[in-house]
């Protein structure tokens, strides 16, 4: 075997196969070629190399599936791509098109270590309160911020993609007594939402479920040295990521 490491081009192919398998179960060479805008002839050698690496396998002559190893690699590549895109869009605030192009150009040339550290920076800026504060003053700094800030972010896809550990969000009320969670979102509207926010239940606050009433409702939570009771209905407006 001449290659043990995926090249940039192979990574792109793997990513494409992954996306096709996600949507259609199996990937055909013809579809891969169309997705990557290359001739079908150039796909086959790449596929052979991927098969040699144990990333894909041929089900039939033209039909390709991912192996578990290939799937894992593809996911990692995709996550890296997403993080880079979001880094360009959310931190550097370039247009979505540029972000997409820059991410594609950059994702293969970064070392694993560099990529890892960049991810950490991204997480720090988006998740850690200190980072967020830094980021917001960076963004509101009039010398850096161009006048056309409005056209930028139209997406609100939450934070689920950032958390690599695969935690899922749930209502505070679904925590176990003694368990802590980080607030990801406070939904609802009108007086109830306002009250929750006024009490300091903001995204990124850590909440602990202290106890539940004997009848199961309301619940009793702890946050920042304060203790509050909420009805389950109100608690369901507060999504947390269990710690």
């Amino acid at each position: 075997m001449q290659e043990t490491v995926l090249t940039g081009a192979l990574e792109d192919y793997l990513e494409t196969v992954y996306q096709l398998v996600q949507s259609r179960k199996l990937a055909r060479v013809k579809d891969i070629a169309r997705a990557r805008s290359v001739r079908a002839g150039s796909v086959s050698p790449a596929m052979r190399r991927l098969a040699d690496l144990g990333m894909i396998r041929y089900v039939q002559r033209e039909y390709i599936d991912l192996t578990p190893l290939g799937e894992e690699h593809a996911r990692r590549i995709l996550a890296r791509h997403r993080i880079l895109t979001r880094f360009f869009r959310e931190i550097l605030q370039v247009t979505p098109e540029t972000a997409e192009a820059d991410a594609c150009a950059m994702e293969h040339s970064l070392s694993a270590e560099g990529m890892d550290h960049l991810t950490r920076l991204f997480e720090f800026l988006r998740v850690c309160p200190d980072g967020r504060k830094f980021l917001s003053s960076f963004h509101s700094c009039p010398r850096i911020q161009p006048a056309s800030a409005e056209c930028m972010l139209h997406h609100r896809d939450g934070t689920e993609a950032i958390d690599g550990k695969g935690g899922t969000t749930r209502s505070v009320a679904d925590l176990k007594p003694g368990q802590k969670g980080r607030v990801t979102q406070v939904s609802g509207e009108g007086p109830i939402r306002r009250r929750l926010l006024d009490m300091g239940i903001l995204p990124d606050t850590t909440i602990e479920l202290e106890r539940v009433a004997p009848t199961g409702d309301p619940i009793w939570i702890k946050l920042e040295g304060m203790q509050l009771s909420l009805r389950r209905k109100e608690a369901s407006l507060v999504s947390v990521l269990a710690a």
């Binding site: 009108g190 007086p191 109830i192 009250r195 929750l196 009490m199 309301p218 009793w220 304060m226 203790q227 509050l228 009771s229 909420l230 009805r231 109100e234």
Partner: peptide, 10 residues
């Protein structure tokens, strides 16, 4: 609208 039962437990 119901008043929120967001009550402090001092």
């Amino acid at each position: 609208e119901e008043a929120p039962f967001v009550m402090e437990l001092p």
